[in-house]
């Protein structure tokens, strides 16, 4: 896995606008895809502007080895992602991948995936992967509003999906962590995988600890290189400051120095 990294010109073969803030790019590799694991990410070069100097990291959303494509779920946030949102089929994109570690393979079938906002990105790939291991996880995904609820059919192929929206226009009203699945006295899970905003992941981590459930989270820190040399994306762990781009992005919550 460590000797697997590529810098390639990938070709845009699909563009799906999920809603005004999110889109999915499908990218075709020029040669056989390297082995990619759920939780790994790609560093995308945004050319043509002095303010988008560094690459942008995105979780790998899905992998299709038969078609030699990967997909990235992207939230439009700043100039870099606005530029990417203007890409068209046939355009090429310089991508460094696959980077970082991955979610661990669970030793239980009682698995819960929790994703909020753009943090759902690696969970579709993870649920595909779990499906191949004959595991059907429960998947709780949170969105701002009905308009942003997307790809539920895809998730439903691999797991039992529960939706929240901040405004209650679809699924249960509230944040992901407000979902009734978390309100039970005993949560019927032995493993939780989580990705989303920091505050949400910290709440999920607290719940996991309270219920003594093993939990992994995928962090998103500001990074320059993405492959372990700049030491900018560090997070404090039980082994000191570790690199989110190499030792992460996935960490077991027991290792993080979270408050």
């Amino acid at each position: 896995m460590q000797f697997n990294k590529q810098v390639q010109e990938l070709k845009v073969t699909g563009y799906t606008r999920l809603n005004p803030r999110h889109f999915v790019l499908e990218l075709l590799a020029p040669e056989k895809l390297p082995v990619i694991l759920p939780g790994q990410f790609a560093q995308v070069l945004v050319e043509g502007s002095p303010s988008t100097f560094l690459r942008r990291p995105f979780s790998i959303h899905t992998v299709d080895y038969s078609r030699n494509t990967i997909r990235l779920l992207i939230q439009i946030k700043g100039e870099g992602t606005r530029h990417l949102a203007r890409l068209k089929e046939g355009d090429s994109l310089n991508v460094m991948y696959p980077l970082g570690n991955s979610f661990s393979i669970p030793t239980t079938k009682e698995v819960l995936l929790v994703g909020g906002g753009c943090g759902v990105a690696p969970l579709l790939f993870l649920s595909q992967f779990l499906h191949q291991q004959q595991i059907r996880p429960s998947i709780v995904v949170g969105f701002r509003t009905r308009e942003e609820v997307s790809e539920i059919e895809e998730y439903s192929r691999y797991g039992d999906v529960f939706v929240t929206t901040d405004d209650g226009t679809e699924g249960e009203k509230g944040l992901v962590v407000d979902h009734s699945i978390f309100q039970k006295e005993r949560l019927p899970f032995a493993k939780i995988y989580c990705c989303g905003p920091d505050a949400m992941m910290k709440t999920v981590a607290r719940l996991a600890r309270m219920h003594r459930i093993d939990c992994e989270v995928s962090l998103e820190n500001t990074m320059a290189c993405g492959f372990g040399v700049c030491l900018c994306c560090i997070t404090p762990t039980d082994k000191g400051n570790e690199r989110v781009c190499v030792e992460g992005p996935v960490f077991n919550i027991n290792r993080l120095k979270w408050q």
């Binding site: 002095p50 988008t52 560094l54 820190n221 500001t222 030491l231 400051n241």
Partner: peptide, 14 residues
């Protein structure tokens, strides 16, 4: 080393 955040992207640099 120093606490996070340790990096800021700037025009044509960091």
């Amino acid at each position: 080393g120093n606490a996070y955040p340790r990096m800021a992207e700037t025009a044509s640099g960091m």
